[in-house]
Every structure is written in structure tokens, then in C-alpha cells.
């Protein structure tokens, strides 16, 4: 394999939400939703971003697209630093980076026809004549497996799976190179999920797209991703190729997460040793010192309580990179 070229480079990304209190609304703290996250996304790959609710995975996706103001860090898209560039310049960039949202019911304007919804990015970016846009919309509808004759219908006339297809068509309208898909299938029924995932996969091959696929469904993430990043409380805990992360996880959190996922096989399921994590995820307003996972970790030592583990690459030369943020990763491997 040749060295892949980087499309998106995220360096030390931070997104904090201030907490105000008292009569004078003074800032008394901050929710550290994303707190120093770095990773890169290579051209043509799908990076899966997994974690439980509140771990900052969606905020990371929004921040990369500049839909959420950053507290700190850099985002490099195709060689250009886009963190903190002004809105008019960002607007020009947006046609290359699009988003597919989780909820296909609230992400489509109920008062617009689907032709209007899918064509909106084209008119915003002033691409083509009205005639060309109409043709493009029909082409997009065909592409996502909907009848082009539906162009004048409204979102309420479609089922959840069809609406998600409309959302995908809208994201593809401007021929972007990078798409952030934020839990695109979690609102859908199982039999419809497979349809949408297969569609995303086909489109990726056809147009050479790069995805950041945000999800909490680990088996789906394994299926669709080339590499996987695991987040916990605003930090990346582990990052590596999907088979490395799923078959030989190095971080205790990844292991617990994987062991918690039910598998559709009664015999395996009964024989499985679950790692049941104690307690709940701590508040991101007041994360634990040291390793953020240490209060729930069975292997935690004094070092874990005092020092934040760095994300380091543990793979040997020539093997795919496998990053982990754990002081004891070598011993646990």
C-alpha cells in the first residue's frame, strides 16, 4: 500500500461549553466536551468515531465542519487550515465538506419540497443554471434509489429510510470530497439500516468519498470503517485499523465497550465473559484527574490517577498504526 494522503488533519481540538452561574452570570466552569483530540483522516477512507453519549463524538464532527466554534486546536482540510477562518471563506469551503444528520425527521424542512431541499446547496453555492440544478436533483434522486418523479413531494410523505436517502442526496449535491455522517442509521429500523449503509458504501466507491462515520453501534462501525477511533469523555482512547481495534483492543475501555455489545448468537452469548463497568460516565464539567477512565478501570494504578496518559503508537515498524492512551497498554496486550 502506498502512503495514504491526508485529507483532514485534526490537531489538539478543544471544544468547551462555558457554565454560567449567579446573578452576574459569571463563568464558573466549562463542560469539556472535546478536550485535546488529534487524528487524521486519509483520502478515500472511512474513519469510524465511536463512544457513548456525551463522549464528544458529535461535537468533534460539528467542529471539523466549523458548525461549532472551537476553543482551541487546528483543523487542516486538504492542506488548508480552516480553524478560525472567516465565515465568507468558510462558506466557499463548505461545498467540499457536507454532513448527514442523525434524525431524518428534524433535519429536513417540512415546508420545502424534496427538490428544494436537495437543490438548496446548489443554489447557495450558485452552481449551474436553474435548469441544470433541476437535472442534477433528478440525477441525485436516482443515485440514492428514489424515484425522480418524487421531486415535488414533501418530507412527510416519506418513511424514515427514504428521508435519510434524501439527506444523503442533499449532502452529495455539491460533489463534496468529505462527508461527516453523524449517526446516520441509529434512528432507523434494522432492516432499513442495512439498505442505508450499503448505499453509503456504494456512493463512497463510486465517488471516492471520505467519511467520518460517527456511531455508537460498534458492529456497524466495524463493518463500514477502515479505521476506528474510540472516544471517552472528550478524549481519544484508542485509534487503529478496524481489525486491530476490534480483534486486539489495547485500551481497557475499548475492551469493556466491545464486551458489552450483544451478539446475535445464543451459544456465544451465554459463554461470553462480560466486563461489566461499574458506575456511570463522570461529568465532563469535572473530569477525573489523570486518565479519565481510571475510576471505572480495573487496572488503574497510582500513575493513572495522577498522570494523563498520552496517545502513543504501539505498533511495530511497517505495521498499521495502533494508537492507545493507556499507561499499561503493553502489559495488557
Amino acid at each position: 500500500m502506498s502512503t495514504p494522503s491526508t485529507l483532514v488533519q485534526v490537531t489538539d481540538l478543544k471544544v468547551h461549553f462555558p457554565i454560567y452561574q449567579g446573578v452576574f452570570r459569571r463563568q464558573v466552569g466549562a463542560i469539556k466536551a472535546v478536550d485535546g483530540v488529534s487524528f487524521s483522516i486519509y483520502k478515500g477512507e472511512t474513519l469510524g468515531l465511536v463512544g457513548e453519549s456525551g463522549c464528544g463524538k458529535s461535537t468533534t464532527g460539528l467542529a471539523i465542519l466549523q458548525l461549532q466554534a472551537l476553543t482551541g486546536g487546528q483543523i487542516n482540510f486538504n492542506g488548508q487550515d480552516i480553524a478560525g477562518i472567516d465565515e465568507s471563506q468558510m462558506r466557499k469551503m463548505r461545498r467540499h465538506m457536507m454532513m448527514i444528520f442523525q434524525d431524518p425527521y428534524s433535519s429536513l424542512n417540512p415546508r420545502m419540497t424534496i427538490g428544494g431541499i436537495i437543490g438548496e446547496p446548489l443554489s447557495v453555492h450558485q452552481i449551474g443554471t436553474p435548469q441544470e440544478r433541476a437535472e442534477r436533483v433528478q440525477e441525485l434522486l436516482r443515485l440514492v434509489g428514489l424515484n425522480p418523479a418524487f421531486i415535488n413531494r414533501y418530507p412527510h410523505e416519506f418513511s424514515g429510510g427514504q428521508r435519510q436517502r434524501i439527506g444523503i442526496a442533499r449532502a452529495l449535491a455539491t460533489n463534496p470530497s468529505f462527508i461527516v455522517a453523524d449517526e446516520p442509521i441509529s434512528a432507523l429500523d434494522v432492516s432499513i439500516q442495512a439498505q442505508v449503509v450499503n448505499l453509503l458504501d456504494d456512493l463512497k466507491k463510486q465517488f471516492g468519498l471520505t467519511y467520518l462515520f460517527i456511531a455508537h453501534d460498534l458492529s456497524m462501525v466495524r463493518y463500514i470503517s477502515d479505521r476506528v477511533a474510540v472516544m471517552y469523555l472528550g478524549k481519544v482512547m484508542e485509534l487503529g485499523s478496524r481489525n486491530n481495534v476490534f480483534d486486539s483492543p489495547l485500551h481497557p475501555y475499548t475492551r469493556a465497550l466491545l464486551s458489552a455489545v450483544p451478539v446475535a448468537n445464543p451459544k456465544k452469548e451465554r459463554a461470553r465473559q462480560r466486563i461489566i463497568l461499574e458506575g456511570d460516565v463522570p461529568s465532563p464539567a469535572n473530569p477525573p484527574a489523570g486518565c479519565r477512565f481510571h475510576p471505572r478501570c480495573a487496572f488503574a494504578t497510582q500513575e493513572c490517577r495522577a498522570q494523563v496518559p498520552e496517545l502513543r503508537n504501539l505498533s511495530t515498524q511497517g505495521k498499521p498504526e495502533h494508537w492507545v492512551a493507556c499507561h499499561h497498554a503493553e502489559k495488557l496486550a
Binding site: 418513511s159 442495512a194 439498505q195 458504501d201 458492529s219 466495524r222 463493518y223 451478539v263 446475535a264
Partner: peptide, 24 residues
């Protein structure tokens, strides 16, 4: 169909998901 529409957690490089076409 339901069993094959869900990817497996413990298998490498799985083949394409079997999707059930259409809607209920």
C-alpha cells in the same frame, strides 16, 4: 433477513450486508 442485515462484531472483512428491500 434480520439476522443477515446486522454485521457481526467478531468477523473480519465481511461481505456486503443483506438488506431487505422495501418497507413494511
Amino acid at each position: 433477513g434480520l439476522l443477515h442485515a446486522v454485521p457481526k462484531l467478531d468477523t473480519e472483512n465481511q461481505e456486503r450486508l443483506a438488506s431487505i428491500d422495501g418497507m413494511p
